[in-house]
Structures are given as C-alpha cells and as structure tokens.
Amino acid sequence: MAGIEAAEEMTPEQLEAMAGGELLKGEAGYFSQVRNTKRSSARLKEAIVGNNLDISLCILAAQQRHCCVWKEYDADSVSSSEPPGSQLKVVGRLADQCQDALVQLGTFLASSHAPDEYAARLPPLQELLRDYHVDADVAFFLHRPVLAQKINAKVEYLRKLSDSKSDSIEKSIERYTQASQEALEPIVQSVTPILPNKVWEDISPEFYVTFW
C-alpha cells in the first residue's frame, strides 16, 4: 500500500541502491514494479496518525519481537505429542514477521512525515530504551532519520561559517566529524546511565552510539 517492501534476499545492486536517496530506493531497491503510491500512502498515514497508532505500533512490534523469542512457555501449554523444540520454527517465523512489519512501518513513517513532525511525535531515545524496554537496534532505527537531520543541519551551519568557497575532501570530512560529535553528544550523555557500568569497561559510550 505504501510501496515499501521487506525483502529477505537482495542482490548486490539492490543493496547499493538502498544506500541512496528515496528516488533511487524506489526505482532500484525493490523487486516489484514501481507504482504511484502517493494517494494510498496519504490514506494510510491519515488512518495511522489520525488514531495516534504510528509510534505505538512500532513499539508494540518491537516488544512482541523480543517477547516471542524469550517468552517461557508452560509445559501444560505444549502438546505432549509434540517433540521438544517443535515450536522453534513458529517462533522464528513470528520474530521475522515482527521484524518485517517494524521495518516497513518505521520506513513508511520516516518517509511520509516531515522531519520536524516526525521528531515531534517520536519519544526520546532514552525513554524508548528505559521505559518501553525497546532493544537498542529498534530505538536507534526509529531515531536515525532525526539524528541524520541534526547532523546535516549542523554540517550546513558549519559550512556557512567557513570563509573558503571551495573545500577539500579533508575539510569536508573534518566538518562532518565535528557536526556528528556535537549532534550525538546529547545521545551519548543520555544512554550512558541506562546500561550497567560493566558495559563501559569494554566499549565507550561514543562507540556504542556511533555503532547503532
């Protein structure tokens, strides 16, 4: 309905296309034929956002993905005729379906909302990790468009402050590195108290945030 697929196996060309912009993703990143989905996407956004289900569905899908893997099933709930581990395939399929739905929904929300609107509807990252018990990969997946916008805005601000009309590659990399550090510093400060101190003995908070 929104023209967003959750492909399980992608060709090298499609992987390269997914690293580009929205137009390149739509043209070369998916298997199905490109269709005009503006009208259906608008209806879907109206139905989801109008009932305040956008972020709630993402959080529920992330929680269900985690729950279905680690939930302990009672011995009485499993048929005695079923061999041990017979539900493993069902659990794996359910986890994959939750992941596919989460990726499709998160990608749709990020592409259909204006950057400021999306950032305003999204809970803070530390709240997703601490209060909603969402895994780090999901929390950063939802916040990645917001962080990218902040970094790009900071890069543009630093570029305007620069006096030189033509910058070298080294200068551009230095500017982007500085912008990334300044944009991610609040995230580093917010996630540091959430995880145990033992975690930071092996990796730094900066590496943790940059990795995700």
Rank of each mutant, 00 (worst) to 15 (best):
A2R: 08
G3V: 04
E5W: 00
A6Q: 02
A7G: 07
T11K: 13
P12R: 03
P12E: 05
Q14S: 00
A17G: 04
A17Y: 02
A19V: 03
A19E: 10
G20F: 02
G21N: 14
K25Y: 04
R35W: 04
R39I: 15
S40N: 07
S41R: 06
L44W: 07
E46V: 06
E46G: 09
N52C: 14
L53K: 15
S56V: 15
L57T: 12
A61I: 04
Q64W: 08
Q64M: 13
C68G: 04
C68Y: 05
W70L: 15
W70C: 07
K71F: 06
K71I: 07
E72Y: 06
E72Q: 14
D74A: 12
A75T: 15
D76Q: 12
S79I: 04
E82H: 08
P83Q: 05
Q87V: 14
Q87N: 14
L88A: 08
L88C: 05
V90Q: 06
V91L: 12
V91F: 07
L94T: 12
Q97G: 06
Q97S: 12
D100R: 15
A101K: 10
V103A: 04
L105T: 11
L105S: 07
F108Q: 03
F108V: 06
L109T: 05
S112Q: 15
A114C: 11
D116L: 05
D116F: 00
E117Y: 00
Y118S: 01
R121V: 07
R121I: 14
P123L: 03
L125W: 03
Q126A: 06
E127W: 11
E127K: 15
L129V: 04
Y132C: 07
V134A: 03
D135P: 01
D137H: 14
A139S: 10
A139F: 13
F140G: 02
H143G: 01
R144P: 01
L147S: 04
L147P: 00
A148Y: 03
Q149E: 12
Q149L: 09
N152R: 14
N152W: 02
K154E: 11
K154N: 10
V155P: 01
E156R: 14
R159K: 15
S162P: 04
K165F: 12
S168W: 00
E170Q: 15
S172T: 13
I173G: 03
I173L: 12
Y176P: 10
T177H: 08
Q178E: 12
S180W: 05
Q181Y: 09
E182V: 14
E182W: 06
A183S: 14
A183I: 03
V188D: 02
V188Q: 06
V191L: 12
T192L: 10
T192K: 13
P196F: 04
N197W: 04
N197V: 04
D202V: 07
I203M: 10
S204K: 09
E206W: 11
V209Y: 11
T210M: 11
F211V: 06
